[in-house]
């Protein structure tokens, strides 16, 4: 880890001011940032510690609105009584207890991906400015099974698919002031000009995440597949939600994590469920449709099978 200067700020304004400087990064939980710095993947000259900004902490919950400050830790979010069940499910197997105690909601949403070529300081992959994605001809057992882009990394967050399944919005402070947008829109597959997993700039500040009342009343569930019982980033994850009207599904969301550059939805699969009763045959059809367009790489065809099964099971669980 290269040496750096360090400042603590007490307000979002102070943070915004300092973050305008070149090669300056904000530190909140630090669990991803310090890992990147220890590998020398990023070498900021200055760190701005935002943990003292009181307004970014805490959870406010009403029947119509669930708002989580960006500095709320994953553990605090998981423990709150008003936190939707799907979020609790997503956090139960996210990282480890210590990491959940440290990591913040804001940081979780903008963490960098876990691709081992990206994480290796000695590999210059496409996302880090190299000529091509090294996973394509390399070991790609954990990589993307969807998407056309250059980069085959996958979204690591457990929280993001669950929040998107609840149509969460994110409140940000950018150069243009305070802005609110659907969380899903934060995630944009990297392009040659924007080699990043999301649209949040280094000087942007995430203030909070919000879930509206409609979504809070949906049936929703989160399933995660790992190769050991705990402490692994998702090999595949699925968040699903729906409103049940007289036993028929409405407002269906099925969001898969760890299968593409961004949290992945297949509209046609959701449509297959909309207005229908949930049963075994329907769940299987939805799952089949979800994976129909998957294009696995050499080593990760198994992820398609796992995804199909997770979608099927998640859809069935919406009944309960």
């Amino acid at each position: 880890m290269k040496s750096f200067s360090y400042a603590k700020v007490a307000t979002a304004e102070e943070a915004a001011g300092l973050l305008k400087q070149r090669n300056t990064r904000l530190i909140a939980g630090g669990t991803d940032l310090l890992g990147l710095m220890k590998e020398r993947l990023i070498e900021p000259d200055r760190l701005v510690d935002v943990n003292g900004i009181a307004q970014l902490r805490g959870i406010t919950a009403t029947k119509e609105n669930f708002r989580v400050g960006a500095l709320t830790t994953l553990a605090e979010l998981a423990a709150h009584q008003a936190t939707p069940l799907i979020i609790k499910e997503a956090l139960a197997d996210a990282a480890t207890p210590q990491l959940r105690n440290m990591a913040t909601v804001g940081g979780n949403l903008v963490q960098r991906n876990r691709c081992w070529y990206f994480r290796s300081a000695e590999h210059r992959c496409w996302l880090k400015g190299g000529p091509r994605c090294l996973a394509v001809d390399g070991d790609n057992r954990y990589h993307a099974i969807y998407g056309e882009g250059e980069c085959r990394q996958v979204t690591p967050s457990d929280l993001a698919p669950a929040l998107i399944a609840l149509d969460a919005t994110v409140v940000m402070r950018t150069d243009e002031g305070e802005d609110s947008l659907p969380l899903a829109q934060l995630y944009v597959a990297p392009t040659a000009r924007h080699r990043r997993e999301h649209a949040v700039g280094d000087d942007d500040l995430i203030l909070a995440v919000r879930i509206g009342g409609d979504a809070l009343r949906r049936h929703a569930t989160y399933l995660k597949f790992m190769e050991r019982a705990t402490w692994q980033f998702a090999v595949v994850s699925v968040a699903a939600s729906a409103r049940l009207v007289e036993g028929r599904a409405q407002d269906v969301r099925i969001v898969a994590g760890a299968v593409a550059n961004i949290p992945w939805r297949v509209k046609a699969a959701e449509d297959l469920l909309a207005g229908e009763k949930i049963d075994d045959a329907r769940a299987l059809a939805v799952a089949e449709r979800f994976v129909r367009d998957a294009r696995p790489l050499r080593d990760n065809a198994y992820k398609v099978a796992v995804l199909r099964e997770l979608v099927r099971r998640a859809v069935l669980r919406l009944k309960d």
Binding site: R114, W116, Y117, S120, E122, H123, L134, D137, G138, D139, E227, R228, A229, T230, W231, Q232, F233
Partner: peptide
Amino acid sequence: DRLSGHVMNANLEDYKIPT
């Protein structure tokens, strides 16, 4: 990694010992 000759999971995140 056959192309670079590197060990890609030389850490306790990707090298998965039992928990």
